[in-house]
Structure formats: structure tokens, C-alpha cells
């Protein structure tokens, strides 16, 4: 399960960052400055990475026996800017407490 959680955390972070870049940098550049390059690159990449996020979330939820509703909520959380980071922390803390294991914090946390 530790491996599935790590995979979920990694892809959740990547997708979260891509989404924030897309919304906060790409969208203003495209619609205000008429420069669509960021949206074209990050937007396409985010679409494919979100699929990996779905797969990783599904895999994790299957292993830790999440109900369907929780799995879908975590998947949806990945579509909202910044909420994905909150969801990732919540999931990690809950599963760490359940396992009674030490989940390593991100580097330079706190």
C-alpha cells in the first residue's frame, strides 16, 4: 500500500501544480495577453497526467478499500485548483494514521 500511496502523492502533486500553472498563468496569458503557448503545452500535458492521477487514485482506493463515493470525491478534488493539495494531505494523514506508520513528509516541509 505504501507504494500505491507514494504513486498517488507524486501524481497528485504534479497534476495540482500543472492545474495551478494552467489557471493562474496560462489562462491570463491566453485571454489577456493573447499568448496561448502555455495553455497549449500545459493544458495538453495536464489532460494526460490527470488520467494517470485517476489511475493512481483508483489503484490506491482499491487497495485501502475506499467506498466508491470517497474514491470519486478524491478524483474530483484533482480538478479544482489548490483543493487537490488539501485532498492529498488529508488522504495521506488518514492513511498514515490508519497504518500507524511514518509517512515521510515532503522535503523542507513546515
Amino acid at each position: 500500500m505504501g507504494g500505491a500511496l507514494t504513486r498517488y502523492r507524486v501524481i497528485a502533486w504534479i497534476v495540482g501544480v500543472a492545474l495551478v500553472v494552467l489557471v493562474l498563468i496560462g489562462m491570463p496569458l491566453k485571454y489577456a495577453a493573447d499568448e496561448p503557448i502555455v495553455v497549449e503545452v500545459v493544458g495538453t500535458a495536464h489532460g494526460w497526467l490527470y488520467m494517470l492521477y485517476l489511475a493512481a487514485t483508483f489503484d490506491l482506493g482499491r487497495r485501502v478499500n475506499w467506498p466508491l463515493k470517497r474514491m470519486l470525491l478524491v478524483m474530483l478534488a484533482g480538478t479544482v485548483p489548490f483543493v487537490s493539495f488539501v485532498a492529498e494531505r488529508k488522504v495521506t494523514r488518514e492513511l498514515a494514521a490508519r497504518l500507524g506508520e511514518q509517512i515521510p513528509e515532503p522535503v523542507a516541509a513546515g
Binding site: M1, R63, V64, N65, W66, P67, L68, K69, R98
Partner: peptide, 10 residues
């Protein structure tokens, strides 16, 4: 597991 809501702990 869906109907019961809370799934059994692993």
C-alpha cells in the same frame, strides 16, 4: 462495501 458505507479496515 458500497451500501454499508464504511468499508472494513484492511
Amino acid at each position: 462495501t458500497l451500501a454499508s458505507g464504511a468499508a472494513a479496515a484492511p
